[in-house]
């Protein structure tokens, strides 16, 4: 019984993550500014991916150290990559 519940919770988190992936990525082919796409991609690629990994964590608690490391590195790398992309792409436009 508890196995069923944890399995369901895990799949629910994964489904939430995949939904966020689709929502955030669906803005990518539209004609919007780069920074707007960065906002939506941070929803999909950071928050959606974290939700998916939490779902995996519920399904497979024995591997928690590496999954926690995955969440940390995912959050830090993707956030800082967003900042670097925003900084580098706007640096050519205005010099301050």
């Amino acid at each position: 019984m508890t196995e069923n519940i944890t399995s369901f919770v895990g799949y629910a988190f994964i489904a939430l993550g995949i939904f966020l992936w689709f929502w955030g990525t669906s803005f990518l082919p539209r004609k919007r500014s780069l920074l707007f796409k960065l906002h939506t991609l941070s929803v999909s690629d950071i928050l959606g991916s974290i939700a998916i990994i939490i779902g995996l964590l519920v399904k497979l608690p024995s591997e928690w150290p590496l999954l926690i490391l995955a969440i940390f590195s995912l959050a830090i790398w993707n956030t800082i990559l967003g900042y670097v992309l925003a900084y580098c792409s706007s640096a050519g436009v205005d010099h301050e």
Binding site: L28, L34, K37, D45, L81, L85, C88
Partner: peptide, 9 residues
């Protein structure tokens, strides 16, 4: 830049 954004994704 749009290409780079897509690659990061």
């Amino acid at each position: 830049w749009q290409k780079l954004l897509a690659f990061s994704s």
